[in-house]
Design a protein around this nucleic acid. Structure first.
Lengths: 164, 164
DNA sequence: AGCTTCTCCTACCGCATTGGTAGGATTAAA
DNA sequence: TTTAATCCTACCAATGCGGTAGGAGAAGCT
């Protein structure tokens, strides 16, 4: 498995926030219910997103979370990096640099480490695929599917994602 | 972590076999010693490669393994697929098709699954990176590094990779 | 003030997988 | 018939993952 549920849930959470175009914060409880995810676990996940300045929070009653940046500018490589800690193909890719691109730890082995050459290629493929996907794209995709699958009465006052 | 040590060790094993251009089989013990890997564990890994017809074996004394195909024709996507079982970005990618390209299990969810869209992209990036890397390329890379780092007397009759 | 609704924080826990070991059975060369 | 190798299966410790529990602070509402 490349990613864990932290990435899955975290991205779902961001998409859900992106669908709320309003600037009023959305509570985790609402998201957890609408996505069917455990609230306590989501709390830990959203903390990772906040630490990376991808979401902002307001505490107290009627508080919640909202996106900290324009969805167009949020690329999935930073999102996944914030959630998973690194995008490492192999356990020897532990010494991460600042960027998320990491280097194999046994660079100066006697053995030439042909595998490192391969894993770097794989890592490049993953990061490139993530980098060219923006949050805005995912939000648009999600909205499109919504309309296609279940046409929802627009303009309703639903508590969450009214397909608008 | 994208891959486990099964992929690491398995690829190393194939590269080592590829360096032995002779048609006489190489024992696992020799490879385990030269690569510093546990023999018993390598046995289980090479079984995966054999099941995928990537290596051939001869039993008994002076037996061992050799490549079953031309290294030029062996691409890393089949290798990793044989070793890891699948290249799945997320746990919902379990229903594998014949090809290794797998489909998300909740295709027909009410929720549009924007994440599936993302993970498919990532999976495509990984598979593409693997597919355009051949075993021959890795063998050549390994040999090049060898020469660059420690020039070896060629034509010797050592039992295993004469860099030792 | 006090209650409620949130975010926030930390410790804990069952479970599956991973990486590795042990021990033997089979095959074939010397 | 000994020896060197592949093969096969069961076992095991450690790790990480997904999830739970139980709060402590912050802000709105009455």
């Amino acid at each position: 498995m490349i990613f864990t549920t932290k990435a899955e849930y975290g991205v779902r959470l961001l998409v859900e926030l992106g669908r709320q175009s309003t600037e009023s914060p959305v509570s985790l409880k609402a998201i957890a219910e609408s996505e069917g995810l455990p609230l306590a676990y989501l709390e830990r996940i959203v903390a990772l997103l906040k630490r990376a300045d991808l979401v902002e929070s307001t505490r107290g009653a009627h508080g919640g979370y909202r996106l900290a940046r324009d969805p167009e500018s949020v690329t999935m490589d930073e999102v996944v990096l914030a959630l998973e800690g690194s995008v490492a193909p192999m356990s020897c890719f532990v010494d991460e640099t600042d960027d998320g691109r990491v280097l194999c730890s046994h660079v100066d082995d006697g053995e030439a480490c042909a595998t490192k050459f391969l894993w770097l290629r794989v890592q490049g493929g993953v990061i490139e695929a993530l980098r060219r996907t923006t949050l805005a794209e995912l939000v648009a995709f999600s909205a499109k599917q919504d309309v296609a699958q279940k046409p929802v009465p627009l303009g309703s006052a639903l508590p969450l994602h009214s397909a608008a």
